[in-house]
Amino acid sequence: MMGRADAVLGVAGRIGAAVLLAAFVLFLVAPVVVIVLMSFTDQLYLTFPPTRFALRWYASAWEQSRWLRAAWNSIQIGTATALASVALGTLSALAVTRGGRRWLLPFGSLVVAPMMLPHVIIAIGLYPTMLDLGLSGSYAAVVIGHTVVATPLVFTTVAAALRGYDHALELAARTLGANGWRTFRFVTLPMIAGGLLIGGIFAFAVSFDELMLALFLAGPRTETLPRLLWEHLAQSVTPTIAAVATLILAFTLLLLVAAETLRRRKAVEPPP
């Protein structure tokens, strides 16, 4: 597995490398594992290692309707964000990769920019804008905020998919009698479907995890899971939070596995 490393590293080097990797993996994984284990405690406060296994904190989370409503809000907002980001990201990616104008490249950088900026700057800019539009605290406000920061991910995955195949396919479709829309529908869309779906999943994940914009743009009715989590963290550190965190972790991991499976399938076999 480490093939060539052996020759370069030598025995002492190999042991050192193994220790380093083990320490790294421990550092990366341990904190998350601790949370998961603690969520199963039967105590009133967080203990590690848990003395007895119990699901009482999961039950407690389930019983508090606020958690459920926040989760439902997050799923709704995440789905709407994914749809909006896919639409905007795909439109921008098509224009930038196929438009054939030099000034489109800076436009591409502008589309990607929100990914690089601290969310707090975007948040304090969007807050008064939403007030002006009468959207403050609404679902639309949060969805729009999340779409601003999630679109770059869709843009980059879709643009990569568009650059990944010969643009002559679309030219060919046009000469064969397909108009602009049908060229997109019957050629471009089948070619980028995988990238589109992966971009959508990423966008959902970004929204599902986003805190800062939700703090400024969401209202009591539209509060998201990260925001509620944040509020609870500021007050107390109960095992309920560990249970909720574990559920969120599991859900995110599931999304990631879905995206990865899609990516693999796309890489291995040509699209049907």
Binding site: V32, V34, I35, P226, W230, V237, T252, L255
Partner: peptide, 14 residues
């Protein structure tokens, strides 16, 4: 992809 809130919370406990 693991939530930053959750990871920071983990360190808070540790």
């Amino acid at each position: 992809w693991t939530s930053a809130v959750i990871r920071s919370y983990a360190w808070l406990i540790l």
